[in-house]
Write a protein that binds this DNA or RNA. Structure first.
Lengths: 215, 215
DNA sequence: GTAATAGTGTCTATGAGACACTATGCG
DNA sequence: CGCATAGTGTCTCATAGACACTATTAC
């Protein structure tokens, strides 16, 4: 057991509790917009979160909180920022590591149906009045994801491969919020980052579209 | 005092120690490169750091560590990322919040002279074998700062205002590491982000240069 | 004068973005 | 056939980057 120069262990000093809070983002099929998942907490709404347990990484704590509070498994959250105001939580000294995770609607829909009273989704740009500094986390998370979507084709995998350019464009417009790039400009911006896959999308109206995957 | 549903306080649960580690970056006048400040630790070299104290924010802990370990005051660090591997510190369960801070050489030179055996600087791209995950923090910090210098004129204030375009370009080349943009291209990229200040730099060889400040 | 640096006029290559046109499926 | 969507040829405009030239100081 480690002792420092004054004979004390690390646990002899004051330590904060460490929490994780996660903005789970998705794009619902109708009213396509970038939405965040909220869970019921003390009569209001909050982001799913939990306290970090011993021996856990932050990512593991996030995954555990998403299983418990939302019902989502096998997620891959990204760290955003630590919120460290000593007064931010009136229960005591709590640091919160904010995370973001983007989940395809197909995985989220079943859990929303399972707990409709305790788990909801709202457009990121409209949520206000969440607990703690969760409003700020939602802003950060949305900006983080939008920045990545400006650079690469569907980096979070919201659409299943293979996909058509139209399917990709619909998701990008939903994430970025109605930035109406014309279809051909979008195509030329994305093509260098995609790989053509044999086959076309059939059963739709109009000319069948070539299938692609991210490369 | 807050108690949860099982009657326990937050401090009844296991909590990690929380540390901060900071990559202090600067550009020395000769051999212009992006350098990081290292301090002596257990026979090797490490980034300056400390444990978070009760009631402190992370930024305050960083400032305290820079005063104690380096001798720098009034700094404005930026958060980078939390390192959370439960095994990363063999003294126990320690999370580290990595930070970056950019310091003008003029503020750093006196403290380097004051403690030449315990505080040194090395080019970011050459440091290896630091304690813990500090090598990774240096990489992250350098990339963070370089990304900001690609966007704006001297965002960290390494050169004192007012400055000439030549002085600005020398610093940018040092930070970005010999990306030889021609002088006039650099000028035209920066001019929209600068404000002309009355007066020119005198006493140098060649035509005196217009002075500017960031706008 | 010469050397050295500051600053500008202008050319070219590249890319974004939009429009208009062609191509190909369905009913 | 008509309609809707996929995909392309091409035009325009803005920008990066470079070269060549002029301007202004010190010596």
């Amino acid at each position: 057991m480690y002792r420092d120069s004054s004979g004390k262990a690390l646990t002899d000093y004051p330590r904060p509790s460490v929490a994780v809070d996660t903005a789970v983002l998705t794009v619902p099929p109708v009213e396509a917009s970038l939405d965040v998942v909220l869970v019921r907490a003390d009569g209001g709404w909050a982001l799913p979160g939990t306290f970090l347990h011993e021996g856990e990484t932050l990512a593991q704590a996030v995954r555990r909180s998403l299983v418990e509070k939302v019902g989502l498994s096998d997620r891959s959250p990204h760290q955003l920022q630590v919120f460290d105001d000593p007064e931010r939580d009136d229960r005591g000294w709590v640091l919160s590591a904010a995370h973001v995770d983007v989940v395809p609607w197909g995985e989220l829909a079943p859990v929303l149906e399972a707990r409709p009273d305790d788990v909801v989704h709202r457009p990121c740009d409209e949520v206000r009045g969440l607990a703690f500094d969760h409003d700020t986390i939602v802003r950060l998370a949305a900006e983080h994801v939008r920045a990545r979507y400006r650079e690469r084709p569907d980096p979070a995998g919201l659409v299943h491969e293979p996909f058509t350019l139209r399917e990709l464009r619909v998701v990008h417009q939903a994430v970025l919020g109605r930035l109406p790039r014309s279809a051909d400009t979008f195509r030329r911006a994305m093509l260098p980052l995609l790989t053509e896959v044999p086959g076309v999308r059939e059963g739709t109206v109009g000319k069948p579209a070539q299938l692609y995957r991210r490369s």
